[in-house]
Amino acid sequence: MIRKLSTPLSREDVLSLRAGDQVLLSGVVYTARDAAHLRLVQALEKGEELPLPLEGQVIYYAGPTPTPQGRAIGSIGPTTSIRMDAYTPALLEKGLRGMIGKGKRTAPVVEAMQAYPAVYFAAIGGAAALMASCVTACEVIAYDDLGPESIKRLTLRDLPLVVAVDAQGGDAFAQGQAAYLAQRDAP
């Protein structure tokens, strides 16, 4: 069954999700990649106000291609999440409740996701032309000088995602690979 969810995410939303669940996500999310994460964490260290809200919010690790005329956004898909792991626990501590990316996370992030709690979704890496149609609005809200790495506020409509790591530490990569190997090796 595919579950429909809207941002901001509540604590209950997050706690009810399990690794491997399929989700269609709608509502506002914020893009941030490596350079934006560095600035966000530096701002937190200095006690400055952040250019985006974190409480209950979702960050999408993505930098879209430029927007063609007559469209809401260019091609957009996830970037590799693990590069953000050095910065992620600090954001989770401030109430960040969801992340969208691709690939695995490191142990400190998985642990912080259980402590606060939060969920990590995987979008299909490389399916960027198709997923562009799930974004209905895009606006740069901070760090414009970073170009593709600026922070953008996106409005999503039914972006297809898989819960990759849940707030209990469940891991869809390990589960999926085990399920395939079990099917292959079944007598």
Binding site: T65, G74, S75, G77, T79, G125, A128, A129, A132
Partner: peptide, 12 residues
């Protein structure tokens, strides 16, 4: 879709 719409297949 990328081919038809002449859009980048991937954002990277």
């Amino acid at each position: 879709i990328a081919r038809r719409e002449r859009m980048p297949i991937c954002q990277d």
